[in-house]
Amino acid sequence: MIQFDQVTKRYPGGNEALKNLSFAIDSGEMVFLAGHSGAGKSTLLKLIAGIERATSGGVLVNGQNLSKLRPSQLPYVRQHIGLVFQDHKILFDRPVFDNVMLPLNIIGFDRRDAAKRVRAALDKVGLLGKEKSMPIHLSGGEQQRLCIARAVVHRPSILLADEPSANLDRAYALDIMELFKSFHQVGVTVVISAHDETLMEDYGRRIIRLREGQFAA
């Protein structure tokens, strides 16, 4: 499903974020990425999503080698991936409903079915009553749920979450983790990064630990 083959990512300026990294994540697996800020967690997720490209090595996602795709093809890879951002990246100029609708517009979903899908996704994260609210009126935890609803509304096969619980208190963070677990249970490949390992250890899943762009011992 996801395979890294001797992947190195060097940013302009010489900063090496990932160093010769090889690993694989099976289809339907739930994996945690651990490490301090700057360890390379975000870069790794960005490589899977095709937001950044590897300097060398191969990144295989759903059987496609992203290193070999033309830049114009990368958006279509992203359409099969759900992304949850640490800073939510919610659009504050439109209501909750329209935020979740955005991915369906992009993949060109039929309009009537799309509304049902949006409500289903909002229901899943517990925001169904707030579809008409503006995001500015949501709490931090609710904004993160909105971001998750947007990430799953088009039913991606891979869900990537970059520090989804970073700014939340523990109770909220656990709620969010339970949400991800429920997506994993219906067959979605889930990769979650966090710097707080105590949350992950309760789940007994594989943890990939990074330090300075390499596997931590």
Binding site: P75, Y76, V77, R78, I106
Partner: peptide, 16 residues
């Protein structure tokens, strides 16, 4: 700008 950035991140092509 924000809308474009988010749309690109979740898979919008340049044409879109």
């Amino acid at each position: 700008r924000d809308e474009i950035e988010v749309s690109k991140l979740i898979g919008a092509s340049d044409n879109f």
